[in-house]
Design a protein around this nucleic acid. Structure first.
Length: 936
RNA sequence: GCCUUGGUGGUGGAAUUGGUAGACACGCAGGACUUAAAAUCCUGUAAGCAGAAAUGCUUGUGCGGGUUCAAGUCCCGCCCGAGGUACCA
């Protein structure tokens, strides 16, 4: 029989589905292993060849672990809420739920054709009310919690209320937006409204003023990605920075735990480093500077309190609430103009621009805490509102940004370290002896930092502080296609609806646009108010009844639904809980998580936070969601170009294009094969090319190429479907693994796919004779055949464990080539190979097992004997003997001999004696039984 | 700008983590089989120089330095690409 991959793959995919082969249940007789892919956003362009890269890797691991006897949980679902569906809805009027559903169906069909071993019984969709019920539920729990630093965990808000009632804020060490101070009497005297406002200052899910990109023309908030040079990507309207009251999650409270627990998980060092930098712990001091002519004080954070004597000015961020208060009437016009300028640039643009120094003087002065000198207070973009207190003490001598600012505005620069030169640049090294620094003079920098903080604390003008760069997550989106907040308002005060009435389902709206008043699209819902008596959603028009209140109009962001999905897979159908104790107690957390690095600071921080919160409230039993994480690289598109001679309909081949005036045009990569254009298909591709002429080289039209982001507009999106039809899923699976290291980004290219397909055909042929009939013998294998088999088993197993799938595939190819040379058709060799190959190419493996009458597919790979030294002692090998790196002679040895024996023999060789010149060797380097070098 | 990451033949990549650079595969060239094509198989293939050939020599892992008997791998300084940069997912 021919290797008919289409038929084989269809047959086994059907068999797996019909027999529910990959359905898993809690089974205490087996060890568990949980392998998870980052679930996809179902985009309208369909699954492209980049998606399966990680999915194939995880599927190989899943199948491999099953072979080893593990009970493997390997689920899949869809991250189905998101902006693209909403924007598509804006253009077409189609409801996002409908397009999302269509896209999911397409994804599912495409995934099914690749032979993945998912347990589809556990599929989840974040936009499904039965799923987002638990997202809303977690939000309610966060709203009803505060974070206690002493206990290092989230606690119920009722606990805090009773503390307030008994002792006020005395001795509290808890996370807050702003530090408040009141007594029990003061608390008890407050109105319900005031109490609720104060509690928002402590809730883990809370409302607060935050800065957003506001586009007045579109009436909406935009992501940084949607803003280009201060204009909206859509329509090119001006965008400004505006403060809005938004929901936030108090992730910053978890900063220390998020940092510390990185040590306990198996992620790559680089990814941990990204997270550490993102959390950005820095130790220093907060200090209060008196303000000239005012009673209040300006708070700043600094990591270099030792440089306090070098402070020659202070800088506020343009958004700081101090800006307005400290601007004198003489400076007001200038400051207003500057703030207008700053509003047009978002944070990223400001950070990227370090060349242009801008700023303006407020007219006010602070007082130096030690010298009592006046310090001018400036405003500048380089101070960011979101970090520290939005105000800094500037030390131009020892900070590069302060230095540039001082040079530009001609402010004084005081060198503080003996011998440092600040005429051309600041001196940022933390070393040397302090000068010009009063009581710190003569101290080493490290000691000076300690002494400075001690002195600041003694004088009561500040204290030691650890600051984190990690900010609270803004949790509101002015969008339609997301989870509704289970929140209604009595006046300004938010209340959560009772969890028993979840899910609060997303209402229909007539349009997906903001309302005329600039409210989010949910403002259009006619039925969107909460009846607190009957606990149900009712007509918005009934709001003037004082038991019916408006619901929150914004929705939750994309990361809400993806933060705890790993727990839900354990117990998808549970109506009583996010996950049952039994299921969570068996599956614990994810053993292996595979996905792209682009989520390093988003999803992977949010989900760790979310899980820690669930851990605190005793829902998740593990403090970390993902034990081991492997990043797969991005697959880029490889675009092809044709070159049209300007003003004609003639196209010139790539190698000859320089002789003409040409314009490069993107051409659909699906009508190009190995950079050679199919000219007939090209003529049919678009009407304007119907009578295209060609200037050929060597009788072919060669296209140019470039590596670009895979996108519809560049005609370089490659769906796996065509490849599956032409070569089969097994070939695609192996080819994607063969393309290069899993974690590296690489352009998609089908150039090498023939080689992989050839390999599978060769493998198939090992089991067949010339007449294509199954022909397998039970003869005993020779030593040479066993050597090939066991070398391959060892190598492939090591490679799977190390996620080095590309080299594993190479090992298979070498193995098949050798067995073909040996004309090996022995069951003893081929049967184990089908098992070894089955994680990579499951369809062909199943077919071969079937043909061989081999039923016991749960055999454990580990039970095969490892590479045996005895098989190696067959032929000899020759290697150079080098002295101090220079090759002097060659010597022959038998394979399999011990390193020490080789060493002895070499040292006894007369040639060696000659080159050693009577000395004894310093070092003998032996690698794999070969003497590489002898250092004399 | 900042953080992370990558740069090796015509191409994708390998290299036991400091030890014979280019495994494996694609492509290309030549050959076998075939009326022919496809398929399959065999041989060659980093560059340069010398040689009839076996082979030998030289150069060579983005650029410039350095450490070492030995550097693709370690150190210092650059250049270029990719991802992230808090409302894309």
């Amino acid at each position: 029989m021919e290797y008919n991959f289409l038929q084989i793959e269809k047959k086994w995919q059907k068999y797996w589905a019909d027999n529910k082969v990959y359905r898993v249940k809690v089974d205490h007789s087996k060890p568990k292993y949980y392998i998870l892919d980052m679930f996809p956003y179902p985009s309208g362009a369909g699954l492209h060849v980049g998606h399966p890269l990680g999915y194939i890797a995880s599927d190989i691991n899943s199948r491999y672990k099953r072979l080893q006897g593990f009970n493997v949980l390997h689920p899949m679902g869809y991250d189905a809420f998101g902006l693209p569906a909403e924007q598509y809805a804006l253009q077409t009027g189609q409801h996002p739920a409908i397009t999302t559903d269509i896209n999911i169906k397409r994804y599912r069909e495409q995934l099914d054709k690749l032979g993945f071993s998912y347990d589809w019984n556990r599929e989840i969709r974040t936009c499904d009310p039965e799923y987002y019920k638990w997202t809303q539920w977690a939000f309610i729990k966060m709203f009803n919690s505060y974070y206690c630093y002493d206990a290092q965990q989230a606690r119920p808000i009722e606990e805090l209320i009773s503390v307030f009632e008994q002792q006020g804020t005395k001795d509290l060490n808890i996370a807050s937006t702003e530090e408040l101070s009141f007594t029990a009497e003061e608390w008890n005297a407050k109105s319900e409204k005031d109490k609720q406002e104060i509690l928002l200052n402590y809730r883990i899910a809370y409302l607060a003023e935050t800065v957003v990109n506001w586009c007045p023309a579109l009436g909406t908030v935009l992501a940084n990605d949607e803003v280009i040079n201060g204009l909206s990507e859509r329509g090119g309207h001006p965008v400004e920075q505006r403060k809005m009251r938004q929901w936030s999650l108090r992730i910053s409270a978890y900063a220390q735990r998020l940092l510390a627990d990185l040590d306990a998980i198996e992620w790559t060092d680089s990814l941990k480093e990204i997270q550490r930098n993102w959390i950005g712990r820095s130790e220093g001091a907060k200090m209060f500077f008196s303000l000239k002519g005012r009673d209040d004080k300006l708070e700043i954070f600094t990591t270099r309190p030792d440089t306090v004597f070098g402070v020659t000015f202070m800088v506020l961020s343009p958004e700081s609430h101090w800006t307005e208060q400290l601007t004198t009437s003489a400076q007001k016009a200038k400051v207003d103009r500057y703030i207008d300028h700053a509003k047009k640039r978002n944070e990223r643009e400001r950070m990227a621009d370090t060349k242009n120094v801008t700023g303006v003087f407020t007219g006010s002065y602070a007082v130096h805490p030690f010298t009592s000198e006046d310090i001018p207070i400036w405003i500048s973009e380089y101070v960011l509102a979101g970090y520290g207190t939005g105000a800094i003490m500037a030390v131009p001598g020892h900070d590069s940004r302060d230095y540039l600012f001082a040079k530009h505005f001609d402010l004084p620069i005081i060198p503080l370290i003996e011998g440092c030169d600040t005429t051309h640049e600041s001196f940022e090294a933390k070393e040397g002896k302090m000068i010009n620094s009063g009581f710190l003079n003569g101290l080493d920098v490290k000691d000076a930092i300690k002494k400075a903080i001690d002195e600041v604390e003694n004088r009561g003008i500040g204290e030691r502080k650890v600051n984190y760069r990690l900010r609270d997550a803004i949790f509101s989106r002015q969008r339609y296609w997301g989870e509704p907040f289970p929140v209604y308002y009595k006046g300004e005060i938010p209340y959560v609806i009772d969890e028993n009435y979840l899910p609060l389902t997303l209402p229909d709206v007539d349009k997906f646009l903001p309302t005329k008043n600039g409210e989010p699209p949910l403002g259009r819902a006619t039925k969107w108010a909460w009846d607190t008596v009957n606990n149900e959603v009712v007509e918005t028009s009934k709001i003037d009844n004082n038991t019916i209140f408006p619901l929150e109009l914004s929705t939750m962001p994309g990361f809400a639904g993806s933060s705890a999905y790993y727990l839900r897979y354990m117990d998808t159908k549970n109506n009583e809980a996010l996950v049952s104790k039994e299921a969570n107690g068996y599956w614990h957390n994810v053993d292996l998580y595979i996905g792209g690095t682009e989520h390093a600071t988003g999803h992977l921080v949010y989900s760790r936070f979310w899980n820690k919160f669930l851990f605190d409230i005793n829902v998740s039993i593990e403090p970390e969601p993902f034990k081991k994480l492997v990043n797969q690289g991005m697959i880029q598109g490889r675009s092809n170009f044709v070159y049209r001679i300007n003003g004609t309909n003639t196209f010139v081949s790539h190698g000859l294009k320089d002789s003409y005036q040409t314009t490069a045009l993107h051409v659909d990569v699906n009508i190009v094969y190995n950079d050679v254009l199919n000219r007939d298909l090209f003529r049919k591709w678009r009407p304007e090319f119907a009578d295209a002429e060609f200037v050929l080289e060597d009788g072919e039209y060669i296209c140019g190429w470039a590596v670009e982001k895979m996108s519809k507009s560049m005609f370089n999106v490659v769906n796996p479907d065509d490849i599956v039809v032409t070569y089969g899923a097994d070939t695609l699976r192996i080819y994607e693994m063969f393309l290069g290291p899993l974690e590296l980004s690489k352009p998609w290219d089908t150039k090498g796919i023939d080689g992989v397909h050839r390999f599978l055909r060769k493998f198939w042929r090992l089991f067949h004779n010339r007449e294509n009939q199954v022909y397998i013998v039970d003869d005993k294998a020779t030593a040479a055949e066993l050597k090939v088999l066991h070398k391959t088993i060892k190598k492939v197993q090591e490679d799977i464990e190390n996620f080095s799938f590309n080299t594993a595939v190479s090992a298979f190819m070498i193995c098949v080539n050798k067995l073909t040379d040996l004309k090996c058709n022995k069951r003893e060799i081929l049967e184990p190979l089908t098992i070894l190959l089955s994680p990579f190419a499951p369809h062909i493996a199943e077919e071969l097992w079937d043909m061989l009458g081999y039923k016991n597919q749960s055999i454990i790979i580990q039970s095969f004997p490892q590479l045996n030294k005895a098989y190696l002692v067959e032929n000899s090998f020759e290697y150079p003997v080098s002295f101090n790196g220079k090759t002097r002679f060659k010597k022959e040895f038998q394979l399999g001999i011990d390193n020490s024996e080789i060493e002895k023999a070499i040292l006894a060789d007369p040639n060696t004696q000659k080159h050693m010149d009577g000395k004894s060797p310093k070092k003998i380097i032996i690698v794999q039984g070969k003497i590489i070098n002898i250092v004399v």
